[in-house]
Nucleic acid binder design. Structure first.
Lengths: 146, 146
DNA sequence: CGCAGTTACTTGAGCTCTCAAGTACTGTAA
DNA sequence: TTACAGTACTTGAGAGCTCAAGTAACTGCG
């Protein structure tokens, strides 16, 4: 008994796919082109920059960037190679690793931020009315938390 | 003069990222697990199945699935290996290639569809009211076409 | 204490995606 | 008619992601 999509649901679904893909690709392209990093790496740097001591445990960081531990582990390995993040052992729990944003990493984030924010505005906020932005927030929260 | 995000825009933006990632991952995981194909391949099969003669030119197909030609070319190559799609030369334009959905491809799509549609409902439509669905459609259309 | 069972994280293989470069054909205009 | 720019598509290399498996350390219960 499959509950197939009605034709208007079908339209919403396809618009959703097209819109979200557009946003993703636009952001990834902009960051890659102008700052040499994918969007996921940017988010990692951003979350670390907001944390106490610019430091987070891997699992905590994974939660904040909506990433699997595996993905984050690979990402941090690359960021470490670039000297943007370093790792340290967690003192409390020897299984745990801390990811620490370096000064170079903070500088890279700072350099990338204006272009990124501008891209976010252009692709998502500028096309919408303030009311639509508010509604989108509610909708996304519902989907995220369901 | 960067137009930074206000704190409520910030919240909407992060909810948007979390929600869209959740949808994407849920769908990809479900299709990969239950049908052995990524979501992008499913969309390719679906678009071909709706086309006249289950056939489309590569460039036309790329437009319909919101894909670069390169990505589509790789994807169709894999689908061809599985026997789900075959290629033929375009009679009008010798540069052009046609992608044709095979019977096996149609069967694979048909087998995958119910589970996929159910996942789409669960992750996107069920958490929203009908009014929110309508609004989401308008919002995504605006973002897509901007 | 001791040893399952769980948690935290890493690693490697396989796969998809992107970007840049390459091939082949088409349309146009001198 | 023959260049020459543009279009259609493919290919290969490099990079990130996923999944499964591996290591190490903590936790709790007999």
């Amino acid at each position: 008994m499959t509950r197939w999509l009605e034709s208007d649901e079908q339209r919403v679904w396809r618009a959703f796919l097209a819109a979200t893909q557009r946003v993703q690709e636009e952001l990834d392209r902009q960051l890659q082109r102008d700052s040499g990093m994918p969007h996921t790496y940017y988010v990692v740097l951003a979350m670390l920059s907001e944390a106490e001591g610019r430091t987070l445990r891997m699992s905590d960081l994974a939660g904040r960037v909506n990433s699997s531990q595996s993905r984050l582990s690979h990402a941090v390995a690359r960021l470490e190679e670039r000297g943007w993040v370093r790792r340290a052992q967690c003192p409390r729990d020897k299984r745990g690793n801390l990811a620490i944003l370096t000064d170079a990493g903070f500088a890279a984030l700072k350099a990338a931020a204006p272009g990124h924010v501008e891209a976010v505005r252009q692709v998502l906020f500028d096309p919408l009315t303030p009311e639509q932005v508010r509604l989108l927030g509610e909708i996304c929260t519902a989907v995220r938390d369901s």
